[in-house]
């Protein structure tokens, strides 16, 4: 595809800190190359802002190759921008044309408070993982890789669920700010494997309890999460988690 340059109008959410009220600021960005990534375009804008003695736009990013899950921008009404199965860092400016107006907002959810500008605090996800998204193993010498036979279909489904990078786009897209796609991916990739079996029940209960405590909503199966997930995590995982949860809750004899 041919390279072209464009001039853009950006409306970006600016907010000094979590306590202060934020608002949109409009910026004109000139001569943006279609070969830049979206984040590089913001980098260029930030250079300009710094040169003008202004505060650059704060945003999360790390790997810039679609694997870490740090980047998080809600662009023109869609988390991670217009492309399917894609993170913002892998969104390229060829998605836009000269004269476009682009509105950039942070993830919105009470459970993801804004730290600054486009950066939100996603440590609620860490606490959900800490509640049960792990397996307990004895340390020591590593076990032989293929010591436990695993059915291919299950291994594949577990692998697909394990692809979740914890970006939070699912929460950002959900009308209920539900974290169920994330949670169910994290619970599924363990529940599908024999190594995850011993803690299967306590895991489902603990992770859901933590999710509720963090202030995420209930899943109503609208499918918005699946549509924006950069890793194509299937909503089928949510159904699996629903089953895991009730199987564990119904037989639990505490209380």
């Amino acid at each position: 595809m041919e390279n072209y340059n464009m001039n853009l109008t950006l409306k970006v959410w600016r907010q000094k800190n979590s306590a202060e009220k934020g608002g949109f600021q409009t910026y004109q960005v000139k001569n943006v190359s279609s070969e830049m990534s979206f984040l590089e375009m913001i980098d260029v804008l930030n250079e300009d802002l710094i040169n003008e003695g202004k505060d650059p736009i704060a945003f999360d990013h790390d790997c810039r190759e679609g694997i870490c899950g740090m980047c998080s921008m809600y662009i023109n009404g869609r988390p991670h921008g217009p492309w399917q199965n894609n993170t913002v860092c892998q969104l390229h400016m060829r998605a836009y044309k000269d004269g476009d107006t682009i509105v950039v907002e942070p993830w919105r959810a009470n459970a993801f408070p804004v730290i600054k500008d486009l950066m939100v605090d996603r440590s609620a996800f860490d606490r959900i993982i800490q509640a049960g998204g792990y397996i307990s193993v004895n340390t020591g010498s590593p076990v032989d890789a293929n010591a436990i036979p695993i059915e291919k279909d299950k291994a594949d489904a577990a692998f697909a669920a394990a692809a979740c990078i914890g970006c939070g786009a699912c929460v950002a897209a959900c009308k209920n700010s539900s974290a169920m796609l994330f949670l169910s991916a994290k619970a599924s990739h363990l529940a599908l494997l024999p190594q995850g079996a011993p803690e299967r029940k306590s895991r489902a209960l603990a992770m859901v309890a933590q999710m509720d405590k963090e202030g995420f909503g209930s899943c109503t199966n609208t499918g918005a999460c699946e549509a924006v997930c950069p890793k194509g995590i299937s909503i089928e995982n949510i159904a699996r988690l629903n089953r895991e949860y009730m199987c564990a809750a119904a037989v639990s004899d505490k209380g």
Partner: peptide, 19 residues
Amino acid sequence: QNRRTRKIGYAVAMGNKGS
């Protein structure tokens, strides 16, 4: 409860993109 999970909403709604 679900309506209370997002105090500050989006300026550009997601609408029917995905649901």
